[in-house]
Every structure is written in C-alpha cells, then in structure tokens.
C-alpha cells in the first residue's frame, strides 16, 4: 500500500513541477491555450466520475456546476477584486452547495429521472444568470486581467499551471474516495442501493457527499474561465458541450478507476484540439459524440478495459480470463 501511495504522490508532484517548468520555457503560447482546456476537461471528467462512475448516477448537469463556478468568480471580481485563489474557492463552495441542493432535491430519483433533473439545473441556472444584470446578463461581461504575477511570462501560462494544480487536486480526491471505504460504499450503491443500505451503508449521506464533492470540483474548474477568456456570457458558459465532454471523457477512459477519466479526458480533449486546428467548423464537437457512442457500444469499460483485456491476453494466451483485483 505504501509504495503505491508514494508512487502516486511522486507522480502528482512531478506533474506540477513539469507544468511550472514548461510554463517558464519558451514554448509556443498556443500550447498553454490548448493545454488549459485539456487540463480543464481532466478536472471535469474526474469530478463527473465521482458521482457518475463510482455511484452510477448519470449527471448531465456538469455545465451548470461549471458555469456557476465561472460566474461566482465574476461575482468575486466585481465585488471585491480578490485574487484568483479566492475566486476558485468561491466557485467551488457555491457549486458544492448547488451539488448538495441537487442531491437533496433528487435524493429519491434514480436512473433517467435523476439525469433529466440535472439537465433542468443547467437551464434554471442559465436563466437566472441571463436575467442577472450584475454579472452582465444575456450580453455577457468584459473583464480586465490583473497585472502579471512573477515569474510567469503571460497570464495564460499562469492559468495553465493553476489548472494543472486543480487537476492534481481533483485526481487526488477521486483516488482517495475510490480507495477508501467511501469508494466501496459508492460502488455498492451503484450495484444495488437497497442491499447497500441493508449492509450498513448510509446511502443518502454518501450520495449527498458525492454530489457535493463532484459539484465543488466542477465549480473550481469553471472559476478560472472568466480570466482565461477575459469575457463571460451565459450561453457558452452553460453549454451542454461541457456536460457531454465530462461524461464522454470518463466513459471513454473507463469509469472504474481514477486513471480512466484522466486518460479519457486527455485523449478526447487532445483529439478535439487537433481537429479544431486542422478542420474548421463543428467537427471537433462531433468527434466527442461519435467517440462516446462508439465506446459505450463497443468498449463499455473504456480504454482501461481494453488495456486490461490486452494485458490478460498477452500474459496467458489460452487460459480463461481471471478477474482483475
């Protein structure tokens, strides 16, 4: 157990150090622009997986939590001008509360009913923001980037590092949940909720916990968005594309292990970035939908499932497959 932990934390530290080094290098500015988006989708897919993958509650509402996180940052900027760290904390806190509220409202709902309710959260959040003048209403709000912080050469480079840190935090939280008793409880809920409850699992509390943590991480992912774009408007902040991307990233990578959403999100977002550069238009969005459907149909356990199968075949060519443990 201990060497595995050590390996994880070494890897996590390495990712952050690497992000800082790259951001101080002379790499092309576009790299950070794209890298920010890739890391952002890692946070979103990881956050989605805590509720959707571990507990089996399919959340279509990622865009709501993400958008509210972004708009909380705007509120903080407007009201106090506090720095990015405060904006992120505020975004996480409010989206976490929204997650808790969603959980409380939908605690009796399962399957598609839960999912449809989360779509409703997006539209209600978007309508509220659209009608709120303070944060710019329907037309949006222009924002001024604060002066640069040393030693970063550009604001985008700094945001890239911030998003890398958020990604590491999100993955660490997901990994902790997965490997602790909480993860086993969520897995039991996913398999059969009634038997879980009768095995002593406080199903309602665990679901609320998962909703809150998942929502908070999505909000944290959204909070740097206003500064990244230096402009924010409701229609694109609450775009269903975020919901599809988060869900697709987790499912394409594999939902049973924390590494799945990381692989899936990096794969998906990178492919999208490449497609965006090479083919203009909406093809990059189409890629997400097509990959999602292909994986759901042909490789339900995602990239991780495929790798596991491949490894099994290489190890023992003819013996029956053993369960992974």
């Amino acid at each position: 157990m201990i060497p595995r932990n050590a390996r994880f934390w070494t890897g996590a530290a390495a990712v952050i150090v690497l992000a800082v080094i790259v951001s101080l290098s002379r790499a092309n500015e576009y790299f950070f622009f794209a890298g920010f988006v890739v890391l952002q989708s890692v946070v979103l897919a990881t956050a989605w997986n805590i509720l959707g993958g571990y507990a089996g509650y399919v959340n279509f509402g990622t865009a709501a939590f993400f958008g509210i996180g972004a708009y909380m940052a705007v509120v903080v900027i407007n009201a106090t001008g506090a720095p990015l760290a405060v904006q992120i904390l505020a975004g996480a806190a409010v989206s976490g509360l929204l997650g808790l509220g969603t959980g409380l409202l939908t605690m009796r709902l399962r399957g598609i009913f839960f999912s449809i309710a989360t779509v409703a959260i997006i539209f209600i959040a978007e309508t509220l923001i659209t009608n709120w003048r303070y944060v710019g209403g329907a037309t949006g709000i222009q924002l001024l980037r604060p002066p640069l912080m040393e030693p970063f050469g550009s604001y985008t480079r700094m945001l890239f590092v911030v998003m890398a840190v958020l990604a590491v935090i999100a993955v660490s939280i997901a990994r902790y949940i997965e490997t602790s008793w909480i993860g086993r409880g969520l897995q039991a809920i996913r398999d059969t909720e009634e038997a879980a409850e009768c095995s002593g699992v406080p199903t309602l509390k665990l679901k609320l916990f998962a909703c809150t943590v998942s929502g908070a991480l999505m909000g944290a992912a959204g909070a740097p968005l206003p500064m990244y774009l230096s402009f924010l408007e409701p229609a694109s902040s609450f775009s269903l594309n975020y919901s599809v991307a988060a869900l697709a990233g987790a499912i394409i990578g594999g939902t049973s292990h924390w590494l799945g959403p990381v692989i899936g999100a990096i794969l998906l977002a990178s492919v999208q970035q490449i497609v965006t550069v090479t083919i203009p238009g909406e093809i990059n969005v189409l890629v997400v939908g097509v990959l999602l459907v292909v994986f759901v149909v042909a490789a339900p356990d995602g990239v991780l499932g495929l790798l596991r199968k491949l490894r099994g075949k290489l190890r023992r060519p003819r013996a029956p497959a053993e369960s992974p443990s």
């Binding site: 959707g52 399919v58 598609i112 697709a248 909406e282 969005v285 189409l286 939908g289 097509v290």
Partner: peptide, 20 residues
Amino acid sequence: DAGVRGLAFFFGVAFIIEVG
C-alpha cells in the same frame, strides 16, 4: 448496467444529431 450506458448512448446520439 443498461441504465448508465443506455443513457450515455442516447445522450451521445442526441449530440451527434445536433452537431450533424
């Protein structure tokens, strides 16, 4: 597991139609 995957499937199909 038809629940999670079936939902994701139809969600993906809707998205493909829209982008198409």
